[in-house]
Write a protein that binds this DNA or RNA. Structure first.
Length: 390
DNA sequence: AAGCCGGGGGA
DNA sequence: TCCCCAGGCTT
């Protein structure tokens, strides 16, 4: 294996020297060869070293496909032929030209960036990746693309397309959004940079990800990396890159009262909108506080006493087994308390409260987990009525 | 109707 | 510093 000399590229983060074992000149050679033979060479922002033209294209191409950008790019340059024209224009004019491209923060940043380059760099974009990345709307990857195309600087890009190409080529089976994984990808991106031909290589990586190594149904048969693609060799193309792990649905807690008296159970009509809209349910104990660990502190006698005050005088309470109900978007942990009144006040009044006949629970319009709980309480084995300790 | 995405900005 | 979201688009 041939040893390579390489000095850290200008925009590289300090201490991020690419490991030698990641270096592989055959990778960039394959990409460059493919790009020169099959890549795009006549896009309006190619074949120029004008950083203004390159920068504008890179910003427009963020989250937007080439076909959509072409028309906007031409019109934008007609209206703002130079960086100074753009910097001097009212932001409203910039927005007007951007109108329809979407993601309008890009346009505001574009305008701010133009003004800063004029003010701080006398209208000439800096060459150094880190200086470029300090400008509004330009991050590490876009900075690398600009300086590579405008100055031929060896700088690594790492956008979504490149992450996909790397994940498949090298069989990286970890989520690229994770910090450590992304850092590793950046090290690899730096290590794979060619000594010569950074423009073809950078363009080639972008084109590869955009045209062959697409997210779904990639065209592996035409890929210059097929012979060395780990994902292809192990039949994992469709599984890489690893998709974003869906975040655990949030967990919510509710304390509910099972208030039984004279063969009746107290229910409450739920609001039409929201969860269990329009159904009856158990009254909830509000004002419950989440403990540090996300669990509900158990309700105490005083809190329950307050909660039931409008219905009567609390005699006793019993903590029932908690229920977990899983919705599509969150988990609800229900802590039910069975509560007995010493003296029942008849006027439950407003707020949709209703004393519901215990024998008719099975027909009540209740959410499934609540109905299940109440049916179990009403007597396990059908001996229902007689054993109901109402 | 869910995933994706470079960069900005809030925690 | 880390994490989450934007806003339009694709699948």
């Amino acid at each position: 294996m041939k040893r390579q000399q390489h000095s850290p590229s200008p925009g590289m983060v300090p201490g991020a020297a690419p490991e030698e074992d990641l270096i592989d000149p055959s990778f960039s050679a394959a990409v460059i060869g493919w790009q020169q033979q099959h890549g795009r060479h006549v896009l309006p922002w190619q074949n120029t070293r004008d950083a203004y033209l390159i920068w504008l294209s890179e910003i427009m191409l963020q989250q937007t496909q080439v076909a959509a950008v072409l028309g906007y790019y031409a019109r934008f340059l007609e209206r703002f032929p130079t960086l100074r024209d753009l910097a001097a224009a009212p932001v409203e004019d910039v927005m007007a030209q951007w109108s329809g491209l979407g993601y309008y923060t890009r346009a505001r940043n574009l305008h701010k960036c133009a003004q800063r380059v004029v003010a701080e760099y006398d209208g000439v974009f800096p060459v150094e990746q880190a200086l470029l990345a300090d400008l509004p709307g330009i991050g590490r990857s876009t900075a690398a693309a600009i300086t590579a195309f405008a100055n031929g600087t060896r700088a690594a890009i790492l956008d979504g397309n490149v992450k996909r190409v790397f994940a498949r080529s090298f069989g990286i089976a970890a989520y690229p959004g994770e910090k450590k994984v992304e850092e590793a990808l950046w090290r690899r991106a730096e290590a794979l940079l060619p000594e010569q031909g950074i423009e073809s290589y950078t363009q080639g990586l972008m084109d590869l990800g955009a045209t062959l190594c697409t997210r779904s149904s990639p065209d592996c048969g035409r890929c210059p990396l097929q012979a060395r693609c780990v994902a292809l060799a192990t039949d994992r193309v469709k599984d890489l890159p690893v998709r974003k792990p869906k975040k655990a649905s949030p967990e919510k807690h509710a304390t509910m009262l099972v208030l039984m008296d004279r063969g009746q159970v107290l229910l409450q009509q739920r609001p039409d909108s929201g969860i269990w809209g329009g159904l009856l349910s158990l009254p909830e104990l509000d004002g419950h506080t989440l403990a540090e660990d996300g669990n509900i502190a158990p309700a105490d006698h005083a809190a329950l006493s307050m909660a039931v005050a409008r219905f009567g005088e609390l005699e006793s309470h019993e903590r029932l087994s908690p229920i977990t109900h899983v919705f599509t978007h969150y988990k609800l942990h229900i802590a039910p308390y069975r509560v007995t009144l010493a003296r029942r006040l008849d006027a439950v009044g407003e707020a949709g409260y209703v004393w519901y006949d215990g024998a008719r629970i099975a027909e009540a319009p209740l959410p499934a987990p609540i109905k299940k709980l109440l049916l179990e309480l009403c007597g396990d084995a059908g001996a229902a009525q007689s054993r109901m300790a109402f």
